[in-house]
């Protein structure tokens, strides 16, 4: 299913070089709001990185700057050797095909079927006419069926997206992102629109898939317990700056107070310890 190109990409992906480096990234919105202030970080191995912080801390801006859905004001973003900042529209499209994105509101095309939504992850590799008549290469179709099975939606291919529940929609969103066979997964608040139980299932699925495929995932998440349970590393953002970067076990009340402000954190931390161990 995966071509030579993908194989060689994987070879470089597990190599010693950083997969993703963000250097001195700054974003100032037209209103003057400084959403990101000199953010520097590196993801060096396939790991799940949770980005936590209160609303407005710049989590979403950071994720969206990486595939330039939001245009950075200054700084560099390197995916492997490639600097994403400064790419032309055409080059950017090519680079985006290597980055899968999962959204809070799922962002499926409601009136299309599950299969069409999943296959839209391959739009970059087919021409306009083929996408008009929905003609995708056979290996993409097979891949899409396989992914639907993997995310637990086997048999749902002909269902329209607007007939699905929230958790099912997010599974389609995950399948669409993985359909790109991405080098990197960007995940923007994947559970904020879901109930607690579904949220855990979705987070577990994202983690499993990232591990299976040896791909790093950057996950914005406001739920500290979920971040602790399902990540290998946590980055704390406050007012657009990185104030914490370490393993989830290092999240002490003092650290959380630093990120979020004064609050009683014992409940949060204890609850996450009580939870089942991450798979």
């Amino acid at each position: 299913m995966e071509g030579l190109e993908a194989e060689s990409r994987r070879a470089t992906a597990v190599g010693p070089r950083p997969l993703l480096t963000v250097e001195a990234l700054t974003k100032v919105y037209p209103g003057g709001q400084r959403a990101l202030d000199d953010v520097t970080l590196a993801v060096e191995r396939p790991e799940v990185v949770a980005i936590i912080g209160s609303s407005g801390a710049g989590k979403s801006t950071l994720i969206r700057c990486i595939n330039r859905l939001v245009e950075p004001t200054a700084g560099h973003i390197r995916l492997g050797e490639l600097d994403l900042v400064g790419l032309s529209r055409r080059e950017l499209r090519r680079a985006r095909r290597r980055i899968g994105m999962i959204f809070q509101e799922f962002n499926l095309v409601e009136r299309l079927t599950v299969m069409e939504n999943v296959l839209s992850g391959r739009l970059g590799s087919v021409g306009f006419f083929a996408s008009l008549v929905r003609r995708f290469p056979p290996q993409d179709i097979t891949g899409a069926y396989g992914l639907l099975d993997r995310v637990g939606l086997a048999g749902y291919q002909d269902t329209r997206a607007d007939a699905l529940s929230g958790g099912q929609r997010q599974r389609v969103g995950i399948a669409r992102a993985l359909m790109q066979n991405p080098d990197l997964l960007l995940v923007d608040e994947p559970t904020a629109s879901l109930d607690p139980k579904t949220a855990r299932q979705i987070m577990r699925l994202i983690r499993e898939l990232a591990t299976e495929r040896h791909r790093p995932a950057l996950v914005n998440i406001h739920d500290v317990a979920l971040a602790q349970a399902f990540s290998d590393r946590v980055i704390g953002l406050k007012s657009g700056q990185v104030v914490f970067d370490g393993p989830p076990t290092a999240l002490t009340p003092a650290v959380l107070t630093d990120i979020y402000g004064e609050e009683d954190w014992s409940q949060t931390i204890r609850r996450s310890d009580d939870d089942e161990a991450p798979p």
Binding site: T113, I141, G146
Partner: peptide, 13 residues
């Protein structure tokens, strides 16, 4: 042992 998935799909009528 991978399941044999179909390699064609047509949108429902």
């Amino acid at each position: 042992t991978a399941a044999a998935y179909p390699n064609t799909w047509r949108p429902p009528a």
